[in-house]
Amino acid sequence: MQKAVREEPAPSDLRVGVQAGPELTFRKLKAFWAVAQSQSLTGAAKLLGITQPSLSQQIIGLEQSLGYPLFVRRSNRMILTEAGVLMLRKAEPVLRGMQDLEDTLAAYGSGQRHPLRLAGVESLLRTILPEALRHMDLDGTAECDLLEGAPADVLEMLYSRQADIGLLAANSISEASTGFLQIPIMADPTVLAVPESLDLGCVARIEDLAPEAQAILGASIQIAFGTQHSRRIESWFSDMLPQNRMTARVRSFETALSMVRAGLGICIVPALSVGPSPGVRLYHAGLEPRRIVALIQPAQHRTGRHAAVVAALQAAGSAMRLPPIEPLPALLSRP
């Protein structure tokens, strides 16, 4: 006699409330969301402030209670299954609603709203934000909490609700992994910065430069801002200045520019990072500009003070004055 085979329901038939019952807690839902966003147990555990074994147990327990695998484990990555994608789509509105409720109750209990928390990379907080803050009207309260960090830090603060709005370059993050609206603020040209005394527009060949100028052009200071960014810059130097060698790797545009001003080499930076200080000469590099965006939760996009901040950032972006930038020198043009 042939044994009956139990047919598994399709992921589209996943009914979380019925199958999970009391096992589907807010804590487990938040753990699932953190792993889905970070795509790793290590990153999600850091985001939630718990140990990795504890987080792994929560995810395994959630999958067992649902009866479906939510993730495919690949090396150190956690990839959502079809059921996981459906779960994430249903979970995000629940988590947003709970967070909004917690914020509302906290504000009611304290008698005041929390300051508007804005996270961003240093070069943008230093340039765009001061102009934006001058024009903000936050319903009678202009109190802001400014949080500085690298792009990955800004995303982490947004995911964990430590920040309400993020200000960074869209080019520096994976567009598919944010889960936030990306509102354009401005385009910031990518430029080659050289010492002010090094005029590349007056010569046709590198060999025509003085030996000390050739030495400066042959040394580069590069910024370590992630693999994708590093590869783009390395490719640029390989194409434009094949004899160039990296002499220093730094963690900020400001440090790189200070080394250029000292005559220690050249660097590729966004124009806004240069600021008003003299000492460098800028040339268009022929690379994609830094696309500056404000990241915000979709539900907050049109709410009072969040909308006011985004509008002020856009106005500041439109009013930004870039430093003088000269055309790409002929000696660097591709044949």
Rank of each mutant, 00 (worst) to 15 (best):
L147P: 00
D145V: 13
L118C: 09
A106Y: 09
Q52K: 13
R73Q: 10
G67F: 00
G149E: 04
R89P: 00
L158Y: 02
R73V: 04
D145Y: 15
L158W: 03
L105A: 13
E143F: 08
G61V: 04
R77G: 13
L86F: 10
A119G: 04
Q64M: 15
P115F: 10
L80D: 05
A91G: 07
A83N: 01
I128N: 00
M157K: 11
I59K: 02
G109A: 13
G97E: 14
L62D: 00
V85D: 15
R117L: 04
M87W: 10
R89M: 07
L105D: 08
L125Q: 12
R73C: 03
L70N: 00
Q64A: 15
D137S: 14
D103E: 12
L138T: 15
P53A: 07
A107V: 12
F71I: 04
R96Y: 07
R73I: 05
E131F: 11
P130Y: 06
G67E: 09
A107D: 11
M87Y: 09
A152P: 03
A150C: 10
V121H: 02
G149A: 15
R77M: 09
V72W: 05
L116M: 05
G109R: 07
M157Y: 06
N76I: 11
T51I: 11
A106V: 14
R73P: 01
I59S: 04
Y68F: 09
R134T: 14
M136V: 15
I79V: 12
A107M: 15
L146N: 04
I60F: 08
T104H: 11
R73W: 06
Q58N: 08
S75R: 15
E131I: 10
K90W: 05
L80Q: 04
M98I: 12
E143P: 01
L55K: 04
A152R: 11
P151K: 05
R74E: 14
L95C: 06
D153T: 15
E131P: 01
I128W: 01
L124F: 15
L66H: 03
E82N: 14
A83L: 02
D139I: 06
T81S: 11
